[in-house]
Design a protein around this nucleic acid. Structure first.
Length: 558
RNA sequence: GCGCCUGUAGCUCAGGGGAUAGAGCAUCGGACUUCUAAUCCGAGUGUCGCAGGUUCGAUUCCUGCCAGGCGCGCCA
């Protein structure tokens, strides 16, 4: 339990005691006591904590809210950390506390280091997070970049709140698109020696296929001597492998590494599709119609049944995906979370149906749908055409704005919001990007600590200083923000809202910058200086921790 | 037609059953002989898309509209 939760609990207990006492004395007549809510008010004039319990209970008590509040306050236990209590507004009970709990926060951070804010909420439950899973037939796009940032940070968040998390990238290297890609690559290879060789009508026109063909020619000059079918098979395997290598490298540069790159072709090779079809057949969930084999997904709430084996004998995408999710479940994950693009939302019903058909509850699978990223350049939409092979890739984006800015930008918005990304603006605003605001706070602290060291000072521990010297409003605000981290992490994880972290980081950085302006450190007399060294040193720990969760660097100098 | 997402300040976006709805950018005015001015301080702006409903209280929850984005394949 965090310092803040403990403090809240103490106040809630006090409120319970007061209400019980009031009931016992007959001043408050209610059947039962609702759950007591306690919040940190937006306005600091409203105290450190405030409860709306009197407003909630007013009707049952048949008294005006303010009157109920007054009765409760009169029965509150005296003394302790509560410095003052007031009834305010329509009937809020506002608590003003001594600052001890804030100083306890510093002691906790000192003891826990970058583990501060973590908890065991997840109790070690195994969670599998699948995201990006871009097809290995072309460069990754900006939605992939958004998914990578969101997925990676969610994974780190889940880990922080006590889950065992595994991350996976599903490589769709066995389907139609991989075949088209193979034929495109083969044609480009032919064209290197015979410019008139026809390019497939539905082929991928991007330059990257040409470049890949040149690498292929150098690596396998004998390839064209093989029979057509073998050539294509080779191009498919070799080409998708190359694309995966590139994706891996791009994502690594973006700070995202997966525990497993799961190949669809492995599922095919080991007969996983046939196995899962057998399983469904045993449960009488399949039927034949129009020469195809169908999955009765409507039995589990899907809009319509889905084809599992096409009339030409090949499988659909969903067949392999069912086999893949079956595989995930067999590996013992209690929860599967997939992050998909908005174009896949219609796909949720059939996958949830499949999960249930396999004998698991519907919410074993949770799908997070990211919304689109609209690329603009100076306010104008950037025209992109996959057919013409013209698009802004994830790599283009990173080249223009950099890893830290890109990640922060994506994580600074709620995942389900549509996102306008103006490239012109992003470049222009490089120096005003919010990410630098946070990084600068970190660098400033490092600078102070460096100079302290040069003066022969060592950052003291909490036990060596008088923390109660930290009384300035800017200091208290900083401490409150530090105390809020554990709750913020848990909420961000539970609500799957990583953008709460960027907000937190921006707020913390802002409070630090204000503190830095009003409170000097090294120039102060020793006792205050030491207490402030402890404070900023712990602010630094928390900034580093949050930036780490965001996958953004915490530079020591800027 | 059905489904998902969005609609909050000039712009980009947070927030959220309660006390005067927030931030950044942009605009304007201040602050560097003092630990980094990539910073800070101050100033203005809102029918929270529209209309009903639930509630002591709705911008927040529910319903219906309106507007925008996307999706509804034996593609992936």
């Amino acid at each position: 339990m965090s310092v803040l939760q403990r403090q809240k609990q103490e106040l809630i207990s006090a409120l319970h005691a007061a209400i019980d006492a009031a009931r016992a004395s007959g001043k408050l007549e209610v059947e039962s006591v609702p759950e007591i809510g306690l919040e940190i008010p937006r306005e600091k004039q409203h105290g450190d904590f405030a409860s709306n319990i009197a407003l909630v209970m007013a009707k049952a008590a048949r008294k005006a809210p303010r009157e109920v509040a007054q009765i409760i306050v009169e029965h509150l236990p005296q003394g302790g950390v509560i410095r003052a209590v007031e009834v305010a507004g329509p009937g809020f009970i506002n608590f003003f506390l001594s600052h001890d709990w804030l100083y306890d926060t510093l002691r906790t951070i000192e003891a826990q280091g970058e583990a501060y804010g973590n908890c065991q909420y997840g109790a070690g439950e195994k969670v599998l997070l699948e995201f990006v899973s871009a097809n290995p037939v072309g460069p990754m796009n900006v939605v992939n970049a958004r998914a990578a940032a969101v997925g990676d940070t969610l994974a780190r968040l889940f880990e922080a709140v006590g889950y065992h998390v595994a991350t996976e990238f599903y490589v769709n290297d066995a389907g139609n698109q991989a075949d088209v890609f193979a034929r495109s690559l083969e044609a480009r290879l032919q064209q290197l020696t015979n410019p008139d060789y026809p390019f497939p009508e539905d082929g991928y026109p991007g330059d990257y296929v040409r470049e890949l063909a040149q690498v292929l020619q150098a690596e396998r000059p004998d390839l064209l001597e093989l029979p057509y079918e073998e050539r294509i098979a080779f191009c498919k395997r070799w080409g998708t492998d190359k694309m995966v290598e590139m994706q891996k490298a791009d994502l690594k540069a973006y700070g995202v590494e997966f525990d497993l790159w799961f190949r669809e072709r492995d599922l095919h090779a080991r007969g996983a599709l046939e196995a899962v079809i057998d399983l469904l057949r045993q449960k009488d969930l399949l039927y034949e119609e129009d020469g195809a084999l169908w999955f009765r997904s409507t039995r589990f709430g899907d809009d319509k049944d889905r084809v599992i084996v096409k009339s030409d004998g090949t499988y659909t995408y969903v067949t392999a995906d069912i086999a893949y999710h079956h595989d995930k479940l067999q590996r013992g994950f209690a929860k599967l979370i997939d992050i998909w693009g908005p174009d896949h939302h219609g796909y949720i019903g059939r996958m949830k149906a499949a999960i249930q058909a396999l004998g698991y509850s519907e919410d074993t699978l949770e799908v997070l749908i990211l919304q689109y990223v609209a690329l603009l350049r100076d306010g104008q939409p950037v025209k992109m055409s996959k057919r013409a092979g013209e698009f802004i890739t994830m790599q283009d984006l990173l080249d223009e704005v950099g890893k830290d800015a890109a990640r922060f930008f994506f994580l600074n918005r709620s995942p389900e919001s549509h996102l306008d990304f103006d490239l012109g603006l992003a470049v222009q605003q490089t120096n005003e990007n919010p990410v630098f605001y946070v990084q600068y706070a970190h660098a400033r602290i490092c600078s102070v600590l460096r100079q302290a060291k040069e003066q022969g000072l060592v950052v003291p521990t909490c036990g060596q200083v008088d923390l109660s010297l930290l009384q300035h409003e800017a200091e208290l605000n900083l401490l409150k923000q530090l105390a809020a981290l554990p709750e913020e992490l848990l909420q961000a994880a539970l609500l799957r809202e990583p953008h709460r972290l960027t907000r937190y980081a921006l707020d913390l950085a802002g409070l630090f910058h204000t503190f830095y302006t009003f409170c000097h450190i090294l120039g102060e007399e020793a006792a205050l200086r030491d207490a402030r060294l402890v404070l900023v040193s712990n602010v630094r720990v928390v900034l580093r921790k949050v930036l780490g969760l965001l996958g953004v660097d915490a530079p020591e100098q800027m």
